[in-house]
Amino acid sequence: MPLDSKDHPLNSLGFAKPPAETRVVVAMSGGVDSSVVAAQLAEEGYDVVGVTLQLYDHGAALAKKGACCAGVDIHDARRVAEEMGFPHYVLDYENIFKDAVIDEFADSYLAGATPVPCIRCNERVKFKDLLETAKDLEADCMATGHYIQRKTGDQGPELHCAADAARDQSYFLFSTTPEQLAFLRFPLGHLPSKNETRALAQKYGLPVADKPDSQDICFVPNGNYASVIEKLRPGAAEPGDIVDVDGRVLGTHDGVIHYTIGQRRGLGIGGLADPLYVVRLDVEKRHVIVGPKELLTTRTVPVREINWLGDALITSQKEWHISVKVRSTRPPREAILRPISETEAEVELLTPEEGVSPGQACVFYETTGSRILGGGWIWRGN
């Protein structure tokens, strides 16, 4: 027998009302993860509204086969909605995506940084404009297929790593604000592995059950960043010199945009006794500076644009003993965070890291437990 709404226990999304009275907008990329979220919530009886963003012209040269938010993925998301019987909308966010994500990606590379556009997309598009659209649709919350957990703590919602460390996406979601977190839900974060997600897709008979995961950046074909930047900024790839740390010319290059900090292969300066790595990029001089591997290590990481998710103000302590990730593929390492202001800090790595690069994120974690304490952007070299 249905209970009165005032006596109704919390549903699986945390609302004290029946699922049928709970509207949830699901951000659907067309992949298996977000499709399973939408299907599961629809089966549980929620008032599901699927929304897919067209982030760039899927007929343009930038798009690639198998990328999210392009033509075939929009079609796949629509098919899932039809199968499960909930409404689905496609929103043209092409101009917003170009202004908020793609242009900064190109400009960052031209400045010698190594940007992470997936973080900016979550921060500036999906969890900003799309989230506001969900509120305009009178949704109670917005759900995504990200592998991360939202838990309720003493002072409100907290962000925690996914149960499956191999699928954890906390590095890409550190800039989620407390206000956004209050509205967001991540139904897949507790699953022990991606196998369970695919099993659910099979259970619901979804047409995307066997669809491969998308790889690399959605608007970068085959991981070739330089070719995309040359299309976006014609003439950007100006030739220059490859030099050692003492300024001696060792070779030439076709453009700084073809190189990243830590790169060893493809330098075109063979015949040297010891291997050399890209240790710095000097955009103004058009120099690619190379040196031995030990020059890649650093202990000090300057961070700005901090989004802090801890319970106390970041400036309430002179030092925070935390763990940090300076690359998405690396495990958290112990560090000391020293705040300079509420949005800027210096991070001391207890164990030196190689290849710390401007433009990458530095994400903060509890040293014990799974909570994400926020993060910021690495803004200058070693």
Rank of each mutant, 00 (worst) to 15 (best):
P157T: 11
G270N: 12
K151G: 07
E43Y: 04
Y259K: 01
G255H: 10
L296M: 10
D92T: 06
L200M: 14
G291A: 08
P234V: 08
P352Q: 07
T252Y: 09
G240E: 09
R185F: 01
V347Y: 01
V356D: 08
A111T: 02
C68N: 08
Q180W: 02
T22F: 06
E82R: 07
P157R: 04
A361T: 03
E44A: 15
L200D: 04
W379D: 09
I261P: 00
L191F: 15
E294D: 15
I148E: 02
R299S: 15
G247P: 07
A106W: 01
K98M: 10
I229A: 05
G271D: 12
L337S: 13
P275K: 09
E294S: 11
A166I: 08
F127G: 01
V101W: 01
F174K: 00
D129Y: 05
G45S: 14
A163V: 15
T315M: 13
H258Y: 10
L55S: 00
E158Q: 03
Y277N: 13
T114M: 08
E238I: 07
C161A: 06
S170Q: 10
D107R: 14
L232G: 05
A139F: 07
W308C: 07
H88R: 11
L131A: 05
S214D: 14
Q155G: 07
A70I: 08
R380V: 03
C121H: 03
V101A: 01
G268N: 05
N95P: 01
V288Q: 06
E294W: 06
Y225P: 00
R233K: 09
P332H: 06
D274M: 12
V356H: 05
D244N: 09
R304I: 03
E138S: 10
D210F: 04
